[in-house]
Design a protein around this nucleic acid. Sequence first.
DNA 1: CTTTTAATAATAGTATTACTATCATAAAAA
DNA 2: TTTTTATGATAGTAATACTATTATTAAAAG
Lengths: 224, 224
Amino acid sequence: MEYQLNFSVNNKIYIRDPESSELGKEIVRKAIELIYEVGYEHFTFKKLALEIGTTEASIYRYFKNKHLLLVYILNWYWSYLEYLVMFQLKNIGDSKQKIRKIIEILTREMPIDSGKMKYDIPYLNQIVITESSKGYLVKEIKEINQAEVFKPFKDLCNTIANIILELDSEYPYPHSLSSMLIETSHNQQFFSSHLKRLTDVKNDEDASAYVAAYLEDLVFRVLG
Amino acid sequence: MEYQLNFSVNNKIYIRDPESSELGKEIVRKAIELIYEVGYEHFTFKKLALEIGTTEASIYRYFKNKHLLLVYILNWYWSYLEYLVMFQLKNIGDSKQKIRKIIEILTREMPIDSGKMKYDIPYLNQIVITESSKGYLVKEIKEINQAEVFKPFKDLCNTIANIILELDSEYPYPHSLSSMLIETSHNQQFFSSHLKRLTDVKNDEDASAYVAAYLEDLVFRVLG
DNA sequence: CTTTTAATAATAGTATTACTATCATAAAAA
DNA sequence: TTTTTATGATAGTAATACTATTATTAAAAG
């Protein structure tokens, strides 16, 4: 006789780990390309299968649906960003300088070590700007959240919150300021590219440079 | 012989004005209910038709697709908010007090004059929190924007930006601060309800009261 | 070196979604 | 009273979001 725990502790993000096979990696790589090109709403597993030269059924063996594939991609990005933050801040002593670096990381388009990255970072940046809120703005938020699906985002938020506290240990809203910075870096980039009147960007000004300047000004007004 | 301008100046938000008929109003009213209940992704014209007791085809005579119906609802809300801001600020002289009022309007759940409103404001508040970014985060942003579809949102943003300038005429980012306030009021309400770790809300604290306090603190740190 | 297992391809099929088209009817306007 | 306009009823299509089945192939185990 066997005893079995009958509740699923963590009904993960994927069915089969896409990192574990060539097809899996190809699914993620080409999904990034395709979502970048057509946008999340027009992105389908059928188009993706065609692009890769595989079948819908094969993709469904890796991901339950396109939403969880999006979330997988976003999570990879958040983990990558957290790694970047950790790595690039470790030799900076000054807290103010750390915040500046974080804003640079949150707003720049290119990775430093462009070229040999696993996934296409500039595409990912765009996807995150346009699609990342669709990862959590869903009716099923509670169930998805219980599956620990948003951990990478929360971790990144927490890491930045701690650096905020380093600079001003009395500041009462470090997590909200952190998540606001992340979200604002996206929507202000979107606005300054597509809905300029919602920002103060100049006509010929670079969108990410503008957002970086705005956010830096903002944070140092808030944290003194 | 006739001369004709062959470009459409403004391919509006709706096909037929929903305000112009009982069915039209019912479509909007019940759409608000249904989107609130099932979320935008699960909302379909078929379900809406069933709810109203009409047919899909009839709804399609008013709106080209569900995205434009959402945008219509959002626009009604932005216009309503701008009216509220205008109305409730007209007897306030102090700029600081005006900003406080704006934050209250952006974060509170109930309308003052609850009861005899055309549409259900608490439902609308929730819809705006969860679905409003889906109005603009689409691949077709350029074409939609050209149809002046986002005017109410831009107007509201501009109105708030002007009040920001009243308080601090030197502040270099009034529009970005304004759009940030609006967007942050939504995502921080969402976070403090569903993803608390991204905020500093207390376990038993009211989400909108928390966000109001956070935003007030934020704005007055920024504008001194 | 064969057998089992596991992964993928190939194919088919279903329910739902997002529409478009047609025709009849009722009510309102001319 | 005629004509226009709005709605209802019905049908149909292409695409989407899946599930299921079987065959084939490659890798792992015996």
